[in-house]
Design a protein around this nucleic acid. Structure first.
Lengths: 329, 329
DNA sequence: TTGTATGCGTTATCAT
DNA sequence: ATGATAACGCATACAA
């Protein structure tokens, strides 16, 4: 009898089926063998409930069918949905996903990369806040939203175009004076281009604008102060606001309501991301929607095909506008 | 020289340091060796940027320091936050997380279990909708919210207590007639006890109640119909509503507003879960909050300690009430 | 204390 | 077409 209380191996299957080890391997991997042999092996596999040991296989083939995905957290609905999409894309390609949540900590990010290297993953997809992340040269890496250099492909939304789109949409809806609000990392990353696109559109249309930009960690009250400074005789100095994320837009919306400013009648508001309540119900605000499915698909394609093709260093995918009730249309 | 373009192995480190293979292994695993040897090995490791190959290690030790986590998706903020908490708990125990999103599909769930078995994970934590999921006997499994039987530990909130708490809170806040609304799986799972707790409390307090219970897949309009049926002369038949999830409560809230019913003045509303907008901003409604951190911690402890201790088959963790503006307090 | 040899479960290269 | 055998990288029992 075979070992009790231990998973069966190919050897057990071979013995059970009365064939050689190599034959079992061939059947498992779909390599043609004699019909009668194939049947006997398949029966033995079913009888013993045999499962291939991925660790032994990975050791031999140097291919693990596993990709590491690194994001700050899953609390933020944007990250959560992104990971969900990546998971779907990986599953479709028959790959497993190893998930690391970094909590924005560069030290943890670096540690996770080392873990991924040990785990011999086939590649890493990351949304990193570590400006000088070190990754082994021969491990395929794809970055989301952060440009590391020409050697590492970066996938992002068309943030610049989205910024332009927001400004244009507000003006199209009748706004005469705009404001841009942003809280975020001071690191140069792709989302920072939202501001540049916004400004460029404002200047092209010759529309006046005000900026309120603060670093991560600044208390939200800074924005309430800003709103109050621009609030005179029951009116705001601007009638259109573009917020760098839906999160901020949602908070601003709360402040405006408290101030008695009507949205979208008195001021119109556009956010960025396209986040929905409970994942798939309504939008929190009018917004520029990021194409998460396409971003995920692109990342997975790049990370799995790296080396086989020379990838572009930056891919920007098209965004679109969606009315979520905080604009006139 | 060692092989170019290929990750260094222990053998390379041994050669570089001028020591034997076994010595390198000992240094790597913290087993005491002569001081001078240790230093030389550490230098070689640093120089070659050596990383232990987890696949070779796992093959040898039969321990992979990896746990598979299986949930329906990450779109739902409840699942996303749960996975986030489990990830933190696993990281604290120096384990990796393999993530599977099943999309509620029993077939996929079964396939993922097979994948996990192949991957030789140290255990599986799952929130499953497959009533007859088959898992290899010797693979530790912990279930969330679904009781599979005495041999598989199940971790859940105190759903029954939460249901009672909701009814009691509504009555405490002045409600005289209650309604319970639920959409969900017909499978017997722990969350279904919310209804039982609710009813038990209503009967203990001698408060009349109405139930509206539909299966997953029923269009939401069924609830609007229900509300309209109980809407006479601008008033609802009940002044307190308990919804089985925050998601449903949020939708009901929208319907009530459309009907011109004021919340919480005319009717008070309590949901379940404790979901917050954008993960950590405000509650969508007054709610019974599930202790996700504790649930995650408990699952991880159970799955990693399985076999060492005889685990209880059902663990219910305490919930608490939080006012989110849809109740008077 | 350090070095050597064997085997984990698989794949792949050989003879047969 | 099938069966025996040598690696893959590491841990460990055993010998030095």
């Amino acid at each position: 009898m075979s070992e009790i209380n231990s998973a069966p191996t190919m050897k057990d299957v071979a013995r059970e089926a009365g064939v050689a080890l190599g034959t079992v391997s061939k059947v498992i991997n779909g390599i043609p063998v004699g019909e009668s042999y194939r049947v006997r092996v398949e029966e033995a596999v079913a009888k013993l409930n045999y499962r291939v040991n991925s660790y032994a296989k990975g050791l031999k083939t140097n291919k693990t069918f596993t990709v590491a995905v690194m994001v700050p957290n899953l609390i933020s609905p944007f990250f959560a949905k992104l990971v969900n999409c990546i998971n779907k894309a990986l599953t479709a390609r028959r790959h497993r996903m190893l998930l690391y949540a970094t909590d924005y900590d560069p030290t943890q990010e670096q540690e996770y990369v080392i873990l991924a290297e040990q785990q011999k993953v086939d590649g890493i997809i990351c949304l990193s806040y570590n400006p000088d992340l070190k990754v082994s040269e021969n491990l395929p890496l794809v970055s989301i939203d952060r440009y590391f250099g020409a050697h590492i492909p970066c996938v992002a939304s068309d943030n610049y175009g989205g910024g332009r789109m927001a400004a244009e949409k507000l003006v199209e809806n009748g706004c005469r004076s705009l404001a841009f609000m942003r809280i975020g990392s001071r690191l140069t990353n792709e989302p920072n281009k939202r501001k540049e696109g916004f400004i460029s559109a404002c200047e092209a249309m010759d529309v006046p604008y005000t900026l309120k930009i603060v670093d991560d960690g600044t208390p939200y009250s800074a924005f309430e102060d800003f709103l109050n400074e621009h609030f005179h005789e029951g009116k705001l100095d601007f009638d259109g606001i573009f917020c760098v994320t839906d999160t901020l837009a949602y908070q601003i919306l709360g402040s405006l309501r408290k101030m008695g400013v009507r949205v979208p009648e008195d001021v119109q508001l556009i956010g960025f991301d396209g986040v929905r309540s409970f994942g798939d119900l309504d939008l929190f605000c009018s917004t520029i929607v990021q194409p998460l499915d396409e971003i995920a698909e692109t990342c997975v394609n790049l990370v799995l095909e790296k080396g086989q093709t020379s990838a572009p260093s930056l891919i920007c995918l098209p965004v679109h506008y969606a009315c979520g009730g905080t604009t006139k249309e």
